[in-house]
Structure formats: structure tokens, C-alpha cells
Simulated assay, not measured.
Amino acid sequence: MHPKTLIIAEAGVNHNGDRARALALVGAAAKAGADVVKFQSFRADRLATVAATKATYQQVTTGEAQTQLDMLRGLELSADDEEQIAAACAASGITYMSTPFDAESATHLVHRVGVSSLKVGSGDLTNAPLLLHLARFRLPIILSTGMGTLAEVEQALGVIAFGYFRDATARPEPAAFANLLLDRATWTKLRAKVTLLHCTTEYPADPRSINLRAMVTLREAFGLPVGFSDHSRGIHIASAAVALGATVIEKHLTLDRNLPGPDHRASIEPDELEAMIAAIRDIEAALGDGRKVPAPEEIPNRAVARRSLIALRAVLAGERFTEDNLGIKRPGNGVPPIEYWSYLGKTAGRDYAANEAIEP
């Protein structure tokens, strides 16, 4: 059977800075059957300067007058908010996760909130100091790779490996990161700790920009588990990713796509999340174990759908079977058709009526 895909409902900043809405997103994700509900942990002043511009999609969804910094300030959750949301997740039976955008937020998530893994957003694929800080917690990491190249992913993995497997006295530098990846044992250890998510960093992402086969490329290049962070409209592309081997699916969740904010329009609503999860679970079941053998349900249908050797007309005992009197028809519970040529020229052991099955 295909291993169960981890479904992450990406609440992100779709709470619009409102704790009550964040808690409602937790409830919606849990009810839909998601395994994880993920938020974002940041302080706007640590993340952006006043000179940082909004992405085009953010200008479309939130207007051009407001700066990115001001937009981010309105989307923050406090440390207390995060702890309350994590408690609500525990009560609802769903795992709390958050993407830290700075070292202080990450430390709070690990030491105060008690997260069991860390998610890195695509924008920090090249943020080596943050990657090193996160890896030094020795927790599993899910790394999004949007906007990245294979070389950048490899470089990020070198930094993460250094954080995992070297103590704090070791000097971090590019040569040390690269050298660590030359050791096969490093990759064995990384395989148990890191999952790579293919991603297209555009909201919403046009299907032509998604290049889902790049997820397979990541798996083949690095030998690590892979998944898909889906920013497309609808649920069909995420479902296709599971068929291609995704072990994790991340999808933005909103309570209402018409709410103000940068990510709502590229998100799915709770009923769509439920439908996506149902589709993924069906796909997992359908993938099976890959062995080409009949399904148990097929066995009774063999006799119905397959054929056996029969007499095309009356055949007398001692008469030879020929192409004129030996045929193949249903049901398939007699001599199989593969024996047809071996029966040609044989003599009938008894009389056969037309359409009667030939005995072995």
C-alpha cells in the first residue's frame, strides 16, 4: 500500500491577524481530516524593510498603496496567540505546525510551543543562517523549494546537514557544507530528517507554471522524501502529485476566498479541503503495492470474462480436433485458450455436443 500522505492545511496568514479566525481555521482543518494545520511565525520588522515591495499578486489582492511591511504587521500572531492555537490543535487532534521566518520565532516555536517539526518557506531556501539555526534544533524539517534550482537546494541541504551533524563549535562556511555532502552517511541521515517540497511561488499558480515532474527530479537527485506545496486553483493537481509519489501535500486553507488579504484567493475552502483529502486517500488506496496480480475481487470474474476450449459443432469420440470443430468461448472455467494449438490434431476422448466445453 502507498504510505499515508501527510496533509498540511496551510492556514498561513489567512487569519488576518485575528486569533478567533485562526482558531476557526484549526477547527475547519481538523473537521476536514487534515493531519496538520500550519501557520506562519514572524515579526514584520524582522522580516522586511520599508523598501520591500509587494509581489504582484499581493498588489492585486491588497492594493498598491500599503507597503509590504505594513501588510505584514497586520498579519502577525502574538506569542500568546501561537500557544493558544497550539493548545486548540492538541484538543482537536490535529498537529500544529508553523513556518518561522526568523531565529527568535523559531526558538519560541521549539522551546515554548513545543513543535515536533519545522517548515521552511520557499523564500528562505537561500537564507543559510536561518537554515543553520533551524537545523540545530535537530527536528525534522520540511523544506519548500519554490523559485529554487537544484544547485540552491543542494546548498541548502549542506547547511542543514551541518546544523544537524556538527556541533556549535564547528565553523560554518560553504566549503564545510559542501564537504559534508560528500559523505554517503550524511545522505542516509538526511533521508530520515528532511522532506523536500516542490512549489511554484505564485498565488494562484497557473498549471503551466507548476512543472510537477520537477518533484520527481528532486527525489531522483537527492534521494529524499518529496512532496508538493500547491498554490494552484482547485484540488486536482495536488491529487496528481500523490500519484507521482508525494509524501506530503500542503494546501492553503481559508474560511472564505472573498476575505481581504494576500492569500485567500489562492486558497481552498473547508469543503474543498475535505474533497481533496478524500480524493488523496482514494488515490493512495488505488496505488496499491505495485505487484501485477489479480485483486481478490477479480478472481470470481475470471470464469465470467475469460474463455475455454469448446466444440464448435458435434464431435464424435475418436474424431480429430481441427480448426473447423475446435473453438474458444466463455465461460473460462475449462481448458484455457493457450492450449488451443496443442489440441489441434488430438482425438476426442468422447462425444461432444456443439458448444460443449472440452475436457482436459
Rank of each mutant, 00 (worst) to 15 (best):
S232L: 05
T126M: 09
A278H: 07
Y203R: 11
P337C: 00
L131P: 04
R306M: 03
L212N: 11
T195A: 11
L6N: 10
R233T: 10
D256V: 01
L69H: 13
L72D: 04
T56Y: 09
P337F: 00
T107P: 00
D256M: 07
L143Q: 03
A170S: 15
A192T: 13
L244C: 12
E323S: 02
R320V: 01
K193T: 06
D282E: 13
S98L: 01
I268V: 15
V226P: 05
A34H: 03
I283P: 03
G334Y: 01
I7Y: 02
V50P: 06
H15K: 09
D80P: 01
R171H: 12
G17W: 04
L72H: 03
A185G: 10
E250N: 13
G245P: 06
A168S: 15
A279V: 06
E250L: 11
L131S: 06
A243M: 07
G158K: 06
R19E: 14
E220G: 05
I280T: 09
L132Q: 09
V335D: 02
L197A: 04
A238I: 11
G227N: 08
A86W: 01
A151Y: 04
P172V: 07
T200V: 12
A9S: 15
D80A: 14
R171C: 08
V153I: 11
G121D: 06
N325V: 00
A22K: 05
P260C: 11
F321G: 00
A151P: 00
V36N: 01
A266V: 12
L47S: 10
G261W: 01
G114I: 02
N333V: 03
S116P: 01
I85S: 01
F42L: 06
R291A: 10
A240M: 13
S209D: 15
G33P: 08
D206R: 15
D18W: 03
R307K: 14
L69G: 04
R350L: 03
T126V: 05
A311T: 02
E82S: 05
P172H: 08
H111M: 00
A295I: 03
L190A: 13
P3C: 03
F42C: 08
P129G: 05
R112H: 14
E284D: 10
L47W: 08
N258Y: 09
A30L: 07
A151W: 00
M97W: 03
A22I: 03
H108Y: 10
L180K: 07
V50C: 07
A168Y: 04
Y343I: 00
K193A: 15
Q68R: 14
A175I: 05
L182M: 11
P336H: 00
V120L: 02
T62S: 15
A295E: 15
G327L: 00
G290T: 02
R306E: 03
N211E: 15
R171E: 15
V60Y: 11
T188R: 15
Y340G: 01
D282H: 14
Q58R: 11
I299R: 11
A357P: 12
S229D: 09
G288C: 10
R291K: 14
L218C: 10
A55E: 13
P100K: 00
A357M: 15
M215R: 11
V115A: 01
E82V: 00
M97T: 02
P360Q: 08
G93A: 07
